[in-house]
């Protein structure tokens, strides 16, 4: 995938994800709602594609304000990924030549690490290997979106298999860089994984923002190997 195409695709996907976040925030917050209107406006500016470095820098600035306002990410990992993409894109749009590529490659590398490290820290934990950890997620964690889903904790074999499937997918993910088709298959599987997390645990923002970073890895694969 050409560098400029990957940058633009990431910008468009990020724009839609941040727009969705901003509208949700506007609906729930009672104070300082103006900043979410500003962010929605900046998203529309970025979507047009004129003056991207300025709109990206301003979006990054408002993200920093929110990071301070909430004293950390509002929505955990999805806010972190939003800021990471914004930082990489801003640097890639401002920095010259190979430094721009370096900034964008950093995003691709972090996306890859997000899967591999998650898989690694699970597989070294006996509770994940036995399936007990995933049972606990369904049994008493704050994430299942309904009480009915907690009954899944009573299916230990199925959950153990699901836990292993996730660990194998995450750990094997870097191997997908070796071939473009393998990468497309791997990204389809991880997108399905995020989709299931959105359905069962309500993590809809993770789905949109992680998919926003996919073009960076498609470009990185073609830059390094393809």
């Amino acid at each position: 995938m050409p560098f400029e195409t990957a940058l633009r695709l990431t910008e468009i996907a990020l724009t839609l994800a941040v727009l969705q976040q901003s509208i949700e925030h506007y609906a729930t917050e009672r104070h300082n709602r103006g900043i979410f209107l500003v962010r929605a406006g900046l998203c529309l500016w970025l979507l047009v594609g004129i003056g991207s470095p300025a709109s990206l820098a301003l979006l990054l600035g408002t993200s920093m304000l929110l990071l301070y306002r909430f004293q950390g990410p509002y929505n955990g990992g999805s806010d972190k990924m939003t800021l990471l993409i914004l930082s990489s894109l801003t640097a890639a749009r401002i920095a010259p030549g190979q430094y721009a590529e370096l900034a964008f490659a950093y995003l691709g590398a972090q996306l890859l690490l997000s899967y591999f490290v998650s898989g690694w820290i699970k597989i070294i934990n006996p509770a994940w290997r036995s399936g007990e950890a995933l049972r606990d997620v369904f049994r008493f964690s704050a994430y299942p979106v309904s009480e009915g889903l907690r009954r899944w904790a009573d299916r230990p074999r199925r959950l153990c298999a699901a836990g292993w499937a996730v660990m194998v997918l995450e750990l094997a993910f870097p191997l997908a860089l070796l071939h473009p088709v393998a990468l497309l298959v791997a990204l389809t599987c991880t997108a399905a994984f995020h989709f299931s997390n959105a359905c069962f645990f309500g993590l809809n923002r993770f789905f949109w923002i992680w998919l926003s970073a996919y073009p960076s890895l498609l470009w990185l694969q073609s830059r390094l190997i393809g």
């Binding site: 990071l67 990410p73 990992g77 972190k80 800021l83 990471l84 930082s87 972090q110 690490l113 997000s114 490290v117 998650s118 820290i121 699970k122 934990n125 509770a127 950890a133 606990d136 997620v137 964690s141």
Partner: peptide, 13 residues
């Protein structure tokens, strides 16, 4: 921590 994330999702429950 955003620029250099740890990505340790669900290390333990």
């Amino acid at each position: 921590p955003v620029l250099f994330p740890s990505w340790r999702f669900f290390k333990t429950v």
